[in-house]
Simulated scan of single mutants.
Amino acid sequence: MSAARDVHAAARAVLAERDVETKLKGAERLWAEWNAGQLQTADSAEPVAPDFAGRPERPLLVPPNQLAKRTLRDREGHAALIHALAHIEFNAINLALDAVCRYPGLPEGFYRDWLQVAAEEAEHFGLLRDHLRTLGYDYGDFPAHDGLMQMARATADAPLARMALVPRLLEARGLDATPEIQQKLRGYGDAAGAAILDIILRDEIGHVAAGDRWFRHLCSLRGLTPEAAYRDLLGRYRAPRPRRPVNTEARLRAGFSEAELDALLDRD
């Protein structure tokens, strides 16, 4: 039986991959290898993450204010919305893999969680891309923005901030937005697209919960109160607060408390 490979280096190789198909297969393979005991954490305390995640030449990345508003007025607008969702999932693969290779020295459960997330995000991307192709388009056919990866770069040296501001903030916003998007898709006659979002919402609750779990673990190591630390990080990084309407049920299942949601939303 061959020796187990270094999980950090293995994740780095997939993270740096630019080809979409190779990255998807790589994320799925890493999760299978972890479950088969073929990957192990390294003793080194040095991160092995590349400076930038690998991505294909397309889509063209532009500032968010240069993106046209995605509406379901026609086939192109419909495809643009599905493309935007697929782009989020592609970035989420990179974000999960980045956590595996950027933050060594954490419990094995941390790497198990983010390898599972990477594999599930790859599945989500594949479902959305296949659906996009039924509309006559493919990933890369529309411009996109890089907001998730910008926050990843801003928190590269701070795992506490990364857990707080990527899964627990930006990805949690997806929990809030998904029911409204599903309603619009069903109204447009896209029951298949809405059904894909059922799968994604189910899994994303678990992904936000993983971020919440490790955020609280890191707070405990530092003697911090999670709710106060979260508010502090929002201010320090000038991060946006949750937008209304908030999917309270999904956020509670992902680890937020009622008191925290009330404070974040300034509810009485």
Rank of each mutant, 00 (worst) to 15 (best):
Met1Arg: 13
Met1Lys: 09
Ser2Asn: 11
His8Arg: 14
Ala13Met: 09
Val20Ile: 12
Leu24Phe: 11
Gly26Trp: 13
Glu28Asn: 03
Arg29Val: 01
Trp31Asp: 06
Ala36His: 03
Ala36Phe: 03
Ala42Gly: 05
Asp43Gln: 14
Asp43Ser: 10
Ser44Lys: 09
Glu46Asp: 14
Val48Gln: 15
Ala49Cys: 08
Ala53His: 08
Gly54Asn: 08
Arg55Met: 03
Arg58Met: 01
Arg58Gly: 00
Pro64Ser: 07
Pro64Ile: 12
Ala68Leu: 15
Ala68Ile: 06
Thr71Gln: 15
Arg73Asp: 03
Arg75Val: 14
Gly77Trp: 06
His78Lys: 04
Ala80Trp: 03
Leu85Val: 05
Leu85Cys: 05
Leu85Phe: 07
His87Gln: 08
Glu89Met: 04
Asn91Thr: 02
Asn91Ile: 00
Ile93Gln: 01
Asn94His: 02
Leu97Gly: 01
Val100Asn: 07
Val100Phe: 08
Glu108Trp: 05
Gly109Glu: 13
Gly109His: 08
Phe110Leu: 09
Phe110Asp: 01
Phe110Trp: 10
Asp113Ser: 08
Leu115Asn: 02
Ala118Lys: 02
Glu121Tyr: 11
Glu121Ile: 08
Glu123Gly: 07
Glu123His: 15
Phe125Thr: 03
Gly126Glu: 10
Leu128Lys: 04
Arg133Glu: 13
Gly136Thr: 07
Asp138Phe: 03
Tyr139Cys: 06
Gly140Pro: 02
Gly140Cys: 07
Asp141Gly: 04
Asp141Lys: 07
Asp141Ala: 15
Phe142Thr: 02
Asp146Arg: 11
Gly147Ser: 13
Gly147Met: 13
Gly147Lys: 12
Met151Ser: 07
Ala156Asn: 14
Ala158Asn: 12
Pro159Ala: 13
Ala161Leu: 02
Arg162Lys: 12
Met163His: 12
Met163Ser: 04
Leu165Ala: 06
Val166Asn: 08
Arg168Pro: 00
Leu175His: 04
Ala177Leu: 14
Gln182Ser: 07
Gly187Cys: 01
Ile200Leu: 10
Leu201Val: 03
Arg202Lys: 14
Ile205Met: 14
Ile205Gly: 05
Ala209His: 15
Arg213His: 09
Arg216Trp: 13
Leu218Thr: 10
Leu221His: 15
Arg222Met: 08
Gly223Ser: 03
Gly223Met: 07
Thr225Val: 02
Pro226Thr: 09
Tyr237Gly: 02
Arg238Cys: 00
Pro240Val: 09
Arg241Thr: 12
Pro245Ala: 11
Pro245Phe: 08
Pro245Asp: 09
Thr248Gly: 03
Ala250Arg: 02
Arg251Thr: 05
Arg251Gly: 06
Arg253Asp: 01
Ser257Trp: 14
Glu258Val: 09
Glu258Tyr: 08
Glu260Thr: 00
Leu264Arg: 15
Leu265Asp: 01
Asp268Met: 10
